Structure formats: structure tokens, C-alpha cells
Amino acid sequence: MRHTYHSEQWLPYSIDLVFAFFANPENLPRLMPPWQKARIEEAVFTAPPTPVGSAPSSRIEGVIAGAGSRITLSFKPLPYAPMRIPWEAEITEFVWNDHFCDDQLRGPFAYWHHCHSLRSETRTNTSGTLLRDEVKYELPLGKLGDLANHLFVTGQLHSTFAYRHKRTDELLSRQAPRS
């Protein structure tokens, strides 16, 4: 059975900075819990088209992976696990400062589709960016996978995204002043 996980984070940074940060796959291992020891094993990048009406922000650092980019990441599934799990994903949609989506090509899920969408939003007189993540996923093993989702996976997604939110704010605060 397919499941959906939603997450939101408001960040006091410009949309171009937040989008560029998430569109840079080099940041992905930095956003995963340290016990996972995530690393990029292989990457083939397809440059995205230049944004309509403007050049990308001069604050953009590193790689930007557009539609068609493929990244293979590996990580430890549990603390102290002796093995690593490979995860290959492809960016299937990419619209500057709006959204991008990636699909798992090979990895631990039977199905995985993750969309990051952004919009400018002002809160208490501070302009910033609302980041929304929507993950649609399915575990292998049918009913056993559904049980694992109920007992383990939903909680792990929640804690992983909580960690990711904390790290995103920490990392972005080093790159730019708050809006």
C-alpha cells in the first residue's frame, strides 16, 4: 500500500537561497542523521535551465542538479549496522524557485516519490520561505511492509525530517543573513 508523509518548515531566508541549497545534492549527506554516515557514491548532473527573467542568485554555491540528474547515495540503515544501503534517485521535475521532485530508481523502498515545493511567505514581518516536502512511498513485502511502516518507518521519517529541519536552519544560517 502507498503511504504519504508531509513535512513543512518555514525558514527566514530568501526563496532563491533555500531552493539552491536543496537543489544542490552535495547538501543531502549533511542533512541526514550522522549515524547514517551518508555519502554520495556517484552522480551525473544535468544542469537546469536558467531561471526565466533572472540569473540564479550570486549566493548559489556548488552544483545544482536539474531534471534528469541521477545521484547514488549510500547510508547505514541502523546505528552501528555493518552494511550500507545504496539509494539511486533521479530528479524528474525541476522548476526554479518553485519545486523539484525525485524518484527512487533503486533502493530500500518499492516506490518513492519526493517533492520539495517552496513559496515566499512573510511571518511576523519577516520575509522567508515555506518549504513543503511530500513523500509518497511504498515498502516491499506487502502486509509485512505495511506493518513495518506502522511500527517503524513513519517514526523514522518523522525523526529524520525533524533532524533535517534543524540542520537546514543551521547550515543556511552560515551561508546568509536572515531575511
Rank of each mutant, 00 (worst) to 15 (best):
N149T: 11
N125C: 08
R84V: 15
A162G: 07
D169L: 09
N27Q: 11
T4F: 03
E26D: 15
Q175S: 10
K143W: 13
L31N: 11
F19Y: 05
D146T: 12
P108S: 00
S7E: 02
T154V: 13
A55V: 14
T46C: 09
V135D: 00
R84E: 13
L78D: 05
L118E: 09
R70W: 06
G145W: 01
E90I: 13
G145K: 01
F94S: 10
E42T: 11
L141V: 15
F21M: 06
W96T: 11
F45W: 06
H113C: 06
R84P: 08
P86H: 02
W96F: 07
Y13E: 12
P49W: 03
P49N: 11
P108T: 00
N97Y: 14
E170D: 14
S69C: 08
N125L: 10
P79K: 07
E134F: 00
T50K: 01
Q175H: 07
E61R: 10
P140A: 03
T4I: 13
F161H: 00
F109W: 02
I60E: 08
L78H: 07
D146E: 14
A43T: 14
R30A: 14
P25F: 03
L151I: 09
S179Q: 13
E8C: 04
E138H: 04
H3R: 13
V135P: 05
F100Y: 09
G68Y: 01
Q36N: 11
L105N: 08
P56R: 07
Q175Y: 08
K136Y: 04
H6C: 07
N125Q: 13
A67G: 06
W10C: 08
P25H: 03
E61M: 10
K136H: 08
V52G: 02
E170A: 12
W10T: 13
P108R: 00
E121C: 09
F161R: 00
D146F: 01
E88T: 15
G68W: 01
I40T: 09
V135H: 00
S7I: 01
V95Y: 02
Y163K: 00
G107S: 07
